[in-house]
C-alpha cells in the first residue's frame, strides 16, 4: 500500500484542544464550603470582637465563592441534557442554589446559610438520582 514518505511527515504538532475533565463530581464538595459559611455565621453571633468579625466576613466570602464554583462545575460539567428527564427542575434548582450562595456571601443570617444547605441537599438527591454516586466517584462515597 502507498504510504506518505517519512520525510514528508509533519514537523510540529498543533492542538485542537479542549478541557480534559477528570470525571469526578460530588455535591459534597460544595456542601462542605457551605457548611463553613453556616458555622462562621454561627460563630460570628457568639463573638463581638471586631478583628474576629472582620476575619470571619472575609473567610465566609471566600468559602461562599468556592461553594458557588463547585456548584457551577456540577451544573456545567456533570449534569447533561438527558438528566432533565429524571430531574425536570434541575436548572431552577441550580439557579436558586447559586443565587442563595450570593445571598449567604453578603448575609449574616444563619437562616440563609441553612437554606443553602437544604438546596445543596436537593442537588445531592439529583446527583444520586442520575447515578452520580456510582459513576463520578472512584468507589462511591466513603462509608
Amino acid at each position: 500500500m502507498f504510504r506518505i514518505p517519512r520525510f514528508l511527515a509533519p514537523t510540529t504538532t498543533v492542538h485542537a484542544h479542549c478541557d480534559l475533565p477528570c470525571g469526578i463530581y460530588d455535591p459534597e464538595q460544595a456542601r462542605i464550603e457551605a457548611e463553613s459559611c453556616y458555622k462562621i455565621i454561627e460563630k460570628m453571633g457568639a463573638n463581638d470582637d471586631k478583628t474576629f468579625t472582620a476575619r470571619a466576613i472575609g473567610i465566609k466570602e471566600q468559602r461562599a465563592d468556592l461553594a458557588k464554583h463547585h456548584l457551577d462545575v456540577l451544573w456545567h460539567d456533570y449534569f447533561k441534557p438527558e438528566h432533565l428527564d429524571k430531574v425536570p427542575n434541575l436548572h431552577e434548582l441550580f439557579w436558586n442554589a447559586t443565587k442563595q450562595v450570593s445571598k449567604v456571601k453578603a448575609s449574616t443570617d444563619i437562616a440563609d446559610a441553612r437554606k443553602l444547605l437544604d438546596l445543596i441537599d436537593e442537588i445531592d438527591a439529583a446527583w444520586k438520582a442520575t447515578g452520580g454516586e456510582e459513576k463520578t466517584r472512584v468507589a462511591g462515597r466513603p462509608a
Binding site: I4, A9, P10, T11, T12, T13, V14, A16, C18
Partner: peptide, 23 residues
Amino acid sequence: AGPWRVAVTESSMAPAIRSGDWL
C-alpha cells in the same frame, strides 16, 4: 522557517479536522 507541515491532535475541530490529520 515554518512550520509548513503539522499534525493535529485532539478533537475540538471535528468533524472538519480530526486528531491525527496531517495538514
